[in-house]
Simulated assay, not measured.
Amino acid sequence: MTDFKPPISERETEELIGIAHSSTKQWQQEAISQAKKELVRRNITEQQQREVLEKWEKEYQEWITKEKERLENNKTESYKIWEMILMFIFGPILIIRPYLLHSYTLFNLRGENYYLKFKQRIIIFSLSFISWFVFISYSTEQSNKKRLEEIDKIDISDWKEKHGYD
C-alpha cells in the first residue's frame, strides 16, 4: 500500500471526492481506491458526492462565463493617452523590454483578446520607429554639416604655401 503525503485519510472530504472522481491521468489508481474507501469510511453518500461535483461544475461554468465576458470586454479596451505617449517616446526600448511599463507583449495582447490595444501598439511602435529613424538621420546629417563647416573655416593658406600648392 502506497503512502501519500499527506495521507489520504487526513485529507478533507471535498479533496477526497475530487480524487475519487478523477482519472488515472491525475492520480494513481491506488490513490483513487484509497479515496473511495475513505469516503465510505466517513459515510459520504453518492448523493453528497454528486452535490459537491455539481457545485464544482456550477462554479466552473460561472468562471467560464466571467472569463468570456472579460475576453469580450478586452476587445475594445484602449490605451490611455499617457500610455500612448510613453510608448511613442520609448518604442524601440519597449520592443526589446516590454515589461518596463508593466504591459503585455504583442503576443500576450493577442492571447488576452486585446484587439484594439494590439492594433494601437503596432501603429504607435511603427510611428515611433519612423520618428526615431528620422530624428537620428537628421541629427547625423546636421552633425556632419557642422563638422564640414568647421573644416571649411580652418585657414590652411600657410600650409598651402609651405607645401607649394599656391
Rank of each mutant, 00 (worst) to 15 (best):
E46S: 13
R97N: 09
I96P: 00
T65M: 09
T105H: 14
E51V: 12
K75I: 14
I44R: 02
Y60C: 04
T45M: 03
Y99E: 12
E15W: 07
E14S: 04
G18A: 11
P7T: 12
W56Q: 05
E83Q: 15
R70K: 15
Y60H: 13
Q49H: 07
N73G: 10
I89H: 01
R97T: 08
I32M: 04
Y60K: 13
F107H: 07
T65A: 15
E10K: 08
V40A: 15
H102I: 06
T105D: 10
S22F: 11
L100V: 13
E38A: 09
T24S: 12
L101M: 15
E67G: 08
S103L: 09
S33G: 06
Q48Y: 02
R41W: 10
H21W: 08
N43M: 06
I44T: 04
P7D: 11
E59H: 08
I64M: 10
S23Q: 07
T24W: 01
G18I: 03
Q28T: 14
N108M: 15
I81L: 15
R11L: 13
E62L: 13
S22E: 10
E83K: 02
Y79H: 10
F107N: 12
N43Q: 12
E69M: 10
E83G: 06
I17P: 00
I64G: 01
L86R: 00
I96C: 03
I32A: 04
I93L: 14
N108H: 08
R11C: 03
Y104R: 05
I89E: 03
P92Q: 07
L16V: 04
T105L: 07
I44E: 02
P98K: 02
S103I: 02
G18P: 00
E54T: 07
M84E: 08
E14L: 05
A20G: 03
